[in-house]
């Protein structure tokens, strides 16, 4: 499975990359939404899963979700917001824009894996 971690913090990308790699994912990284779109469009690859921060420079996570939902080839990509934005209105905005799941930082490893399992995105045979 292919995942992409989109976060302007290198530290957070490293944590999330490690989590996905432990689940057997090949992992791409991007520092903001624009960088992620450019990477995916230049490689022609469509991840099974994107973990997306909200507050980033250049292109926010919400803007990324909105853009991705316009691209037919990327519609099967599961979008999980992983962010400190925890106001109810913000969560509703993200889900309405097309995000499938929402995780609030600070998260636990098990919390993310449980949500991925519900989405069918934990490979068979992999335990948390």
């Amino acid at each position: 499975m292919l995942g992409i971690v989109i976060d302007d913090s290198r530290a957070m990308r490293k944590i999330l990359r490690g989590l996905l790699a432990d689940l057997g994912y090949e992992v791409l990284e991007a520092g903001n939404g624009r960088e992620a779109l450019d990477l995916l469009q230049s490689t022609g690859r469509v991840p099974d899963l994107a973990l997306v921060d909200w507050n980033m420079p250049v292109m926010t996570g919400l803007e990324f979700v909105i853009e991705v939902r316009k691209i037919t080839e990327m519609r099967q990509m599961t979008l999980m917001m992983v962010t400190t934005e925890s106001e109810h209105g913000q969560i509703v905005r993200a889900l309405a824009a097309g995000a499938h799941e929402y995780v609030i930082k600070p998260f636990t490893r098990d919390g993310i894996i449980d949500k991925l399992a519900l989405l069918g995105l934990v490979p068979v045979g992999v335990s948390s």
């Binding site: 913090s9 530290a11 400190t84 934005e85 106001e87 209105g89 609030i104 600070p106």
Partner: peptide
């Protein structure tokens, strides 16, 4: 990067219990 992210996560959680809407 690390200290900034620490402030970001703390700030986001603090913001959630302050008057809303606010932007971080």
């Amino acid at each position: 990067d690390a200290l900034g992210e620490l402030a970001n996560v703390l700030g986001g959680n603090v913001k959630s219990v302050l008057p809303s809407p606010s932007q971080l």
